[in-house]
Amino acid sequence: MYNLRAVFARGKEVKFISHLDMMRVFERALRRSHIPVSYSCGFNPRPKLVFGLPLAVGVTSEGEYVDIVLDEEMKNDVFMEKMNGSLPAGLKILKVSPVEGKGNIMSSIQGALYDLIVSIQFGKTEEYIKQSIKKLISQDEITVEKRTRKKVGIIDIKPMILDIGVKILSESGFKELEFGYNSNMSYFPDKLAKEKYSDLFESCEGTVLIFSLLVRAGSRGNLKPELFAEALKSVLGQDINICEIHRRKLFAD
C-alpha cells in the first residue's frame, strides 16, 4: 500500500464535466497508464481515489487534490509522468507527494480561493461599483436564495466569506479596487495575467470585474461563488453575467 496525493489543474477543455465524470476520467487514465491503483473489496470493487472537493460543472481550477492508493510504491515523478501521458487535454497533474498519516483529504478541506469573473452592463462608474460592493460586504448579513432540489431557502452567506478582493478591467489593464475586508488579498500571489483571460474578455460584454473570493469550503460549510454573484445582484442590478469561475487553491487544515 502506498498513498500519494496529487495536485492537478482542470482547464477549460474539460470544465463542463461533473464530479462523477471526473472520477471516471481518472479511473480510465489510471488503467491506460498501467498504474497499480488499489481497489476496494466487495461486490463492486472501486479504485481507491478520494478527491478533495468536487469541482462544479463549468469551473476551472489550478489546485485540485486527489488522494490515490497504490498496491505498490511508485516514484512521484514517474507517477506524474505516466498520468500526464494518459489524462486528456485540460487535465494535468502539477505536483505529487506521499501522504503522511491517515488524514482524509475530503474531510480536511476548509477553504477555497476562487476567481469569480463577472460582467455588468456598461455605464456604471468605477466609484459606483466600488461603493456598491462596499455596501454589500459591510452589511451584517448577506442573504441569498438557495435552491436545492427540494426547496428554496434563504441563507446568510456572510459568515462563509473570509476575504474579498476586486479588480476592474480597464483599457490599461487590471486595476485593484482598493478596500479592505478581513485582510489584504494581495497576501495571495496573483498570477492572473491578461493573456490568460484574453479570450474570455472577448466574449464578455460590459464592464468586467474579477473577484478574488476566499470562502469556506468542504463538508463543514461550503460557499459556491455563484451564490456570491447572486448577492451582487442586490446592489449592482440583475444584469450580472458570470463569465468564468476559477478555483485557484484549496486550503486544508
Binding site: 463542463f16 464535466i17 465524470d21 460543472v57 463549468g58 474570455l200 466574449s203 453575467n241 458570470i242 463569465c243 468564468e244
Partner: peptide
C-alpha cells in the same frame, strides 16, 4: 463562437 453563458445555461453542456 460558443459563449460560456450559453453553455452554462443548457443541460449537460459536455
Amino acid at each position: 463562437g460558443l459563449s460560456n453563458k450559453i453553455l452554462m445555461s443548457v443541460e449537460k453542456p459536455a
